[in-house]
């Protein structure tokens, strides 16, 4: 028996909107510690890892570990029927081939339930070891989204270079080139407006802008984004989900022939 009650149901709506175009089908794993997902895009270039810790739910019951295969497009269709202020409850019985989403309006005058068919999905779980990254940049998520969008009008790839001076986003295309440098800026009024660079070694990596733009759909989940880079590793783009966990996107770098 599984029963998870999330008062801030909009968080789950936002999570689905941010991953449904990257991944078609995924297994949601439920254990006593939380509700999580790890899934790769069909080309195995990008991966999304989601964690919603059990403590973030108003009510969290998970009698035994469960893995529920869901089509994210269909799940998104159902969650779009929930109001932004609704409380969302996810329910499933042991061994059932369906999951139920229940939506309650804040005033309790409208209660809806949607039953969705589960599916068998081959597990493609990657072991991602903890790593020390050479450069970690934290910046306003809206700024990062703006940069990715702007650059994708000019080129297909972005070179992200971190030095002591700042983080540089560069692209080149048929019409020309672009370079955007964000300097460390910790003297802002609000901490979420700061750009903070923690660098042990300078790093420069090339990524497909199409994927970066897809990751920025999670911008509504967090005011800040953290970009972790090492020369030998995929980049990690992380959006913290208030008090509950995170959504992390991993993207393999492009390499010169």
């Amino acid at each position: 028996m599984l029963e998870l009650r999330l008062v801030q149901g909009s968080l789950l709506k936002k999570v689905l909107e941010s991953i449904k175009d990257l991944v078609n089908d995924a297994n949601f794993d439920c254990s006593s510690s939380g509700f999580s997902l790890q899934a790769m895009d069909s080309s195995h270039v990008a991966l999304v890892a989601l964690l919603l810790r059990s403590e973030g739910f108003e009510h969290y019951r998970c009698d035994r570990n469960m893995s529920m295969g869901m089509n994210l497009g269909n799940m998104s269709k159902m969650l779009r029927c929930a109001g932004n202020d609704d409380i969302i409850t996810i329910k499933a019985d042991d061994g059932s081939d369906t999951v139920t989403f229940m939506f309650e309006s804040p005033t309790q005058d409208k209660i809806s339930d949607f039953e969705m068919k589960l599916m068998d999905i081959d597990s493609e779980h990657l072991g991602i070891p903890e790593a020390e990254y050479q450069s970690i940049v934290t910046m306003p998520s809206a700024e990062f989204a703006r940069i990715c969008k702007d650059l994708s009008g000019i080129g297909d790839t972005v070179v992200i270079s971190v030095t002591k001076e700042g983080v540089k986003f560069s692209t080149r295309g048929d019409i020309g080139t672009a370079n955007i440098v964000c300097r460390q800026n910790t003297t802002v009024d609000k901490p979420e407006e700061a750009t903070v660079i923690n660098m042990s070694e300078p790093v420069s990596l090339t990524f497909a802008l199409r994927y970066m733009n897809s990751f920025t759909k999670a911008t509504t989940l967090s005011n800040t984004v953290t970009i972790s880079l090492s020369s030998e590793l995929p980049v990690v783009v992380e959006y913290k989900i208030a008090e509950m966990g995170y959504i992390r996107f991993y993207l393999a770098p492009k390499i010169e022939e």
Partner: peptide, 14 residues
């Protein structure tokens, strides 16, 4: 244009 690498080059299936 540089080659797109794959996540499997970095991480193993578990």
């Amino acid at each position: 244009s540089p080659l797109q690498n794959n996540l499997m080059e970095y991480y193993c299936m578990v």
